[in-house]
Simulated scan of single mutants.
Amino acid sequence: MIKTKRFGEWYELTLPRDWDGFTIDYILRNIWRAPKKQIHLMRMENQVKVNGEWMNWNSPLKYMDRLQLRIFIDEDFGVIPFYKEVQILYEDDHLLVLNKPVHMDTHPNEDGQTNTLSNAVAFHLQSQGEYRKVKHVHRLDRDTTGAVLFAKHPLAGTVLDRMLEERIIKRTYVALVHGLVKTKKGIIKEPIGRDRHHATRRRVSPSGQQAVTHFELIKTYPKQNLSLIKCQLDTGRTHQIRVHLSYVGHPLAGDVLYGGKPIFDRQALHAAKLEFPHPFTMEKISCNAPLLEEEDNKSVMLANLLHVLPNN
């Protein structure tokens, strides 16, 4: 694990042995893969020092050198801070993982919207005296619950975006679907595109984007003709799990948009687990998102059926 410290606006990283000989430019471009614009800004604004001094970005660094980055810079939240009690699953100086409740958007979809998870994050940061632009690394549908990852500064956002794209961030969902699933494990590889006949609906389409969903059967409920499955994504297309499971004849319970019956007031989908190496320390982060209490009887029934959450 890489040793790190924070000093006000500055973040200090002690160079590990296997980075010996790397340059500042190499670390930013090839280790963290920051975009050229971001690297240029950091260079022009003198946001990088080594052992407390300015250094040529192409000079080799040594094992145990202290690489210092000015990355904790105040900026506008980008959304209106708004109080909403939320469950924090993990937080440090760089990132934040929250357990999103039902009936809440991940981010505002129109000017002035305040009842989203991003607004709640902004309020939480503001209450701690942190003024950061709120950035969600991925999102969940309004009626999907569970773990959502946020970056707390631009460099963290850059690294986490790349990790998500390269499938280094592992997302595990539990879903309750109609029908009794016959296979223990399977992979759905079908491209997903927009449905030109419906503004929000997606569909399997030969001209769509590549989408890969892995699923594993956890439990069946023969009396209710339902199955509980675990899903992991190789891609993150809009409505991916909902579209794929409907396509193979097992729509999510409650998901009327994709053929599910309205036995719940929402689709039975929960982002139960999020796993990834920390973008700077390389420490393994593993967040399990418990099901939050919901008020109506249908949701209590859903929670009872979704109670088997994956441990691995």
Rank of each mutant, 00 (worst) to 15 (best):
C231K: 04
R66C: 08
T172M: 02
L306K: 07
R242Q: 05
G193I: 11
A122P: 01
D111I: 09
R17Y: 01
A175D: 06
K170F: 12
D161M: 05
E190V: 13
S118V: 03
Q38R: 05
F123T: 01
Q87F: 04
G249H: 09
Y63H: 14
L252P: 00
H307V: 09
V300Q: 15
E9W: 00
P108S: 13
T14D: 06
D265Q: 13
E85C: 05
V159C: 07
G52S: 09
V86D: 02
D234S: 11
I169Y: 05
H197A: 12
Q209G: 11
F215H: 10
G193N: 03
K133S: 13
H270M: 09
G236E: 00
L67I: 14
E110K: 15
S227N: 03
K62Y: 01
H40R: 15
M104W: 04
S207R: 15
I218D: 00
S127C: 10
G186T: 06
A199Y: 12
R167G: 03
P279T: 12
V212A: 11
L309V: 03
D65W: 05
E293R: 13
T145D: 09
H136V: 11
K5M: 11
V97D: 04
Y83M: 05
T238N: 01
L245H: 08
M44F: 05
Y131I: 00
K36G: 15
Y221R: 03
C231D: 10
G78R: 06
P290I: 02
V300D: 11
D65K: 14
R17C: 04
D234L: 08
P191Q: 07
K100S: 07
H239A: 05
G193T: 14
S227G: 02
V79S: 03
H197I: 02
K185V: 09
V102D: 01
R70K: 15
V243S: 06
T14M: 12
K230I: 07
G146E: 03
I27W: 00
M282R: 15
D18S: 10
T158M: 07
V174A: 03
L228F: 06
L292V: 07
I192S: 00
S246C: 05
E130D: 07
H153N: 12
R139H: 12
L245M: 15
F215R: 00
F7S: 10
I263Y: 04
I31L: 13
I285G: 08
H138K: 13
H214P: 11
T116R: 03
R29A: 09
D255I: 09
K298S: 15
H94G: 01
F280A: 09
Q68A: 10
I73W: 01
D161Y: 06
G193M: 04
G236S: 07
D195T: 09
N119L: 06
V148L: 02
G186E: 04
L95Q: 04
K261F: 00
I187N: 05
T14C: 12
E293P: 03
L226F: 13
V97Y: 11
